[in-house]
Amino acid sequence: MDLAFWITAGWTVAAAGAALSFRNPVHCALCLALAFAGLAAFYLELGAEFVGFAQILVYIGAVAILIVFAILLTRASEVDEEPRAFPWAGVAVAAIVFITFAGAIRSSALADRMPAREVKPVVKQLGMQMFQGSYLLALEVAGLLLTAALIGAAVIALQEYPKRQD
């Protein structure tokens, strides 16, 4: 259990760091897929199987591929030509945010909490909660949101052809 955690943690954080530090955006997108896979492994480790597989389907299967397509469509894959100075300000802000979070987590009363008992979320129970319980309205709204986002994305990205002259 411990070894699995450390392997997953190292892999996820390294892939996330690589995803934002490579110069070639295609390499970044592939490292992002690796980081998503590491997060899915975390979810499986924590016992949330449905979310783990949903993560693989949605993030690796759709979002990462969408990003690769956007890179291909925008010629963003051209590597930055001019070398830039190391961005100290942004890295310093990120480091300060992490130190603040880490301090808050370390001093929290919940820090050393262990899981109370083993719970196996059965997909059937999850489905009952979502489709019969109090989450039904939220589910409908999420469906509406996804439809609107789909139509909106298509409209925004639609190529505007010049009008023909004949």
Binding site: V13, A16, G90, V97
Partner: peptide, 17 residues
């Protein structure tokens, strides 16, 4: 719990940076 929270904070900081 704090191990997971620290990993999550690290991922957040990497994304923010």
């Amino acid at each position: 719990l704090q191990h997971y929270l620290i990993v999550s904070a690290l991922l957040f900081a990497v994304g923010l940076g």
